[in-house]
């Protein structure tokens, strides 16, 4: 009985971690700036490539993952300064510009690096509960997802940057008038979002085939989590992850991956009919 329960939890945790890790960065950028970063998948890919490259160069995996996260974050800041900043107040144009960037990066890398590079293999380690065997690394991913949520909470609720960021989120013009450097907050938020995307790629790098178009594997999950979660990353993303992971897990277990993904999409479409501003929109309205 315990083994079955644990197995169910394990499957839930696996999907939940994937949703949260792939969506967290996108959700922060959307929540702060009202913008969807269409190159989000490419930041994930960047994290994965840097990780694998460093591991091949002899760097230990956790250190390589940390470096990859930072690298993606720095590139994010550069993209914000060069492109996104020029398009404030034009959220749809930002979507298009970052999509153009995504095309350039994926196809450019296909030319430069070829279709796939050798991977590094999932860290070994497994444990058994009753008759079932589980991969330890999958649980590490779940712990990381929880860690990311906790870190976002701490950053936004407990730091000076968080105060400025929340003020900017509420009312950018007012925050500016009160002396918040809104441009800096946006650059930092975009960088943070990119870094979280990089972390996602770094964490999943050992489990995947590395191809320049691998970002596409994550975008559907990240999009739907943000759509369901809404604009407030603190209130929306985690519940959205729980909700969608539950739907996905149940469908995956009973009908397989294809139906799992289609079912999740259908669930999202049904949810937006009733909750146009996502879960956080509902919670904020309730709280008023």
């Amino acid at each position: 009985m315990f083994a079955e329960l644990f197995s169910t939890f394990y499957q839930f945790a696996d999907v939940f971690a994937f949703l949260i890790l792939s969506a967290a960065g996108l959700a922060i950028v959307f929540g702060m700036m009202g913008v969807i970063n269409m190159a989000h998948g490419e930041f994930i890919m960047c994290g994965a490539y840097v990780t694998v490259g460093l591991v091949h160069a002899g760097v230990p995996l956790p250190l390589a993952q940390a470096c990859a996260t930072i690298a993606a974050g720095l590139i994010g800041v550069v993209v914000e300064v060069l492109i996104v900043r020029k398009l404030y107040k034009r959220p749809l144009d930002t979507l298009l510009a970052t999509w153009g960037l995504s095309l350039i990066v994926t196809q450019g890398l296909l030319i430069l690096l070829g279709s796939s590079i050798p991977g590094i293999g999932t860290p070994e380690g497994s444990f058994t509960v009753g008759p079932y065997t589980f991969s330890t690394y999958r649980l590490v991913l779940f712990a990381c997802a929880i860690g990311v949520l906790a870190a976002i909470y701490v950053i936004f609720m407990r730091t000076r940057f968080g105060v400025m960021a929340r003020a900017t989120m509420q009312n950018a013009a007012m925050a500016q008038a009160l002396g918040v450097k809104v441009g800096g907050v946006y650059a930092a938020s975009f960088g943070l979002g990119a870094a979280l995307a990089g972390l996602c790629g770094a964490l999943y790098a050992p489990t995947m085939t590395l191809i320049p178009t691998m970002g596409a594997t994550f975008v559907v999950e990240s999009f739907v989590t943000v759509v369901v979660g809404g604009a407030n990353v603190l209130l929306g993303t985690a519940p959205a992850g729980v909700l969608l992971a539950t739907v996905r897990m149940l469908l995956n277990a009973n009908y397989g991956q294809i139906i799992g993904q289609i079912g999740m999409l259908v669930a999202v479409i049904l949810i937006i009919r009733v909750l146009p501003e996502g879960i956080s929109g509902l919670l904020v309205r309730r709280g008023r």
């Binding site: 350039i104 196809q107 296909l110």
Partner: peptide, 16 residues
């Protein structure tokens, strides 16, 4: 791939 890179660049250039 080169054609697609160009399409991406065109999209970016159009927006900017």
């Amino acid at each position: 791939q080169l054609a697609l890179v160009l399409m991406g660049a065109l999209l970016l250039a159009t927006v900017m």
